[in-house]
Every structure is written in C-alpha cells, then in structure tokens.
C-alpha cells in the first residue's frame, strides 16, 4: 500500500440543496491512517459535507472536485462509493422494520466483496465474522439479531452504525455526529470501536459538535467549518481552544484571514 497517495482530496467544493448554497469552497485532504475531526456550529455545513461525500442525490454539487484514491468520487453512485470503501455513519440512522440487521449486513458485505472480486461469504463464515466484530465493538447480540434499527434507542442506533462499519471495513469512514445524544458509556463504546478500527490504510473524518468525543478519539487534524468553509485547521489543541472560546472566536479569526479570497470567490 502506498501512503503517499491521498485517500480523500476535496478541492473548493461547493454544494447546496434546493438552490440554497451550503458548502462554499471546502478544501480537505485526508491521508491513509489519519483521523480528521471537523467541528463547527449548527448550520455550518458539516452534515451536508458528509451527505455529499456519501452521494446523497438531494444535494447539488455546484463546483469543485472530490477525489477518492485518485478517482472522481462525485461520479460514483452511492452504492459504488460504499463498495469502493467509503462508509458514512449516519447522524440519524433509519429504522427499517422487516429487515434483519444481520441478514442485511450479509447482503451489504457480499455486494462489497463481489465488487472487489472477492468470494462471497457463506452463512457460517459470515456468522464467525460478525461474532468477532461484535466483540470488537462490544455490540450486544440481541441488537445484532433484531430488525434494522427498529425500536433501537439513540445510543443503540449509533453503536449499530459502528458495528456496520466494523463489519464492512471501509477505507474511508465518515462519522456524522455519531456522538450526539450519547451518554458517556455509549460514547466510550463508540470511541473504542473507532479506535479499534484505526489502521494505517484507513482514514476517518469525524464530524462532531462537541470537543468531548475528541478526548476519546484523538484526531491528527482538527478543522473548523463555519458557513460552508473550513476556516481553521490545526492539531488536537484547536478543539480545546474552540471548547474554551466558542465558534464565534474561530469565525472572527476566519473573517480576517479569508476575507479577500472569499470575496473573490463570490464575485467570480
């Protein structure tokens, strides 16, 4: 594996929904093995970025490029992105009554394996795999056997997302506010799961509203997203500054730093 090639390269990404611009020029490069945290106030475009990367069609990309392992990510259908190794842990995982969590995961994993030219797993091999993954992310067997997210608590849904991630073994995992609404125990389970999956060839984009998560998942880089742009990037200490001083501080800093190019972009 080569570590010199970026896993994800976002350049000047513009996107919006229903004609309203939300992302206004995002630049972000994630190398294999790195964990990037994206923080920002409500409405800054964090979830939009996650949805756009996963291929949600409701969002229109109006400019910029996204390359994933050298390929044009925006050209790929959502399922192709997943099969190529992009995983989105949803902020609000969908309840799907009537679909078994386990069987669904088997179908998903086999779709991914088939795409990669790997042999599909039979029932026994799959069962062994999920047992190991359940242990890895401390997932309760009763949740695994239930229907997909139906009647799960908020915390259980988030843990199930991490469980899916563990089974599907993505190359790039995007966690969209996976920590929101979790108590400290659930937060630890989620963080332990992510940490267990950290690997030299795997990258993470961890979107969060709170610094707290970053005590458990220690990022390599922290970015601050405000009004559709990354206004600051730094080490993990940046998260602490944000926590202490609020986003207003980062916003003010950005206004000075980015005023000129920002104006250029809007008039271009």
């Amino acid at each position: 594996m080569t570590h010199s090639e970026p896993l994800l390269e976002i350049h000047d990404l513009h996107a919006g929904i229903d004609g309203t611009p939300i992302l206004k020029g995002v630049d972000l490069t994630v190398m294999p093995g790195e964990v990037h945290a994206i923080m920002g106030p409500n409405g800054s475009g964090k979830s939009t970025l996650a949805q756009v990367l996963a291929g949600r069609e409701e969002y229109a990309v109006t400019g910029g490029t996204v390359r994933y392992r050298g390929e044009d990510l925006l050209e790929m259908e959502p399922e192709i992105r997943a099969r190529e190794g992009v995983f989105l842990a949803f902020q609000y995982p969908v309840e799907i009554p009537g679909v078994s969590n386990t069987y669904f995961l088997k179908a998903a994993l086999n779709a991914i394996r088939k795409h990669r030219g790997e042999k599909e797993l039979d029932a026994v091999a799959f069962l062994n795999l999920i047992k190991a993954k359940m242990k890895l992310v401390k997932m309760d067997e009763s949740l695994v056997k239930r229907t997909l997210n139906e009647g799960f608590s908020g915390g259980e849904k988030k843990r199930n997302e991490i469980f899916h991630m563990a089974v599907l073994e993505p190359r790039l995992a995007i966690l969209d506010e996976t920590d929101s609404g979790l108590d400290i125990d659930a937060l630890r389970v989620v963080a332990d799961g992510v940490n267990a999956l950290r690997a030299p060839d795997r990258g993470f984009v961890v979107i969060t509203h709170y610094q707290r998560l970053l005590e458990y998942i220690v990022p390599d880089v922290v970015h601050v997203l405000v009004d559709g742009r990354i206004v600051r990037s730094g080490g993990k200490e940046l998260a602490l500054e944000l926590e202490a001083q609020g986003y207003g501080w980062a916003e003010d800093q950005s206004a000075d730093a980015l005023a000129a190019p920002g104006r250029e972009r809007t008039t271009a």
Partner: peptide, 30 residues
C-alpha cells in the same frame, strides 16, 4: 418509498434496485 431509507441502504453498498426491493419487501413483511 422513503428516500432516506433507500439512501441508507445504498450507502452500505446495496444497489439502487435492490434497496428499493428490500424496502418494498419490508413493507409487506408484517
């Protein structure tokens, strides 16, 4: 069919047709 649910399944690697079919089956499953 719920677009959110279709997208959720597709984001896990399930093709668009299969995602819609899974949700259709799920609708009937009870």
């Amino acid at each position: 069919l719920d677009d959110d649910a279709v997208f959720y399944l597709r984001s896990r690697g399930i093709g668009a047709d299969a995602a819609r079919s899974i949700l259709t089956y799920a609708f009937a499953s009870d």
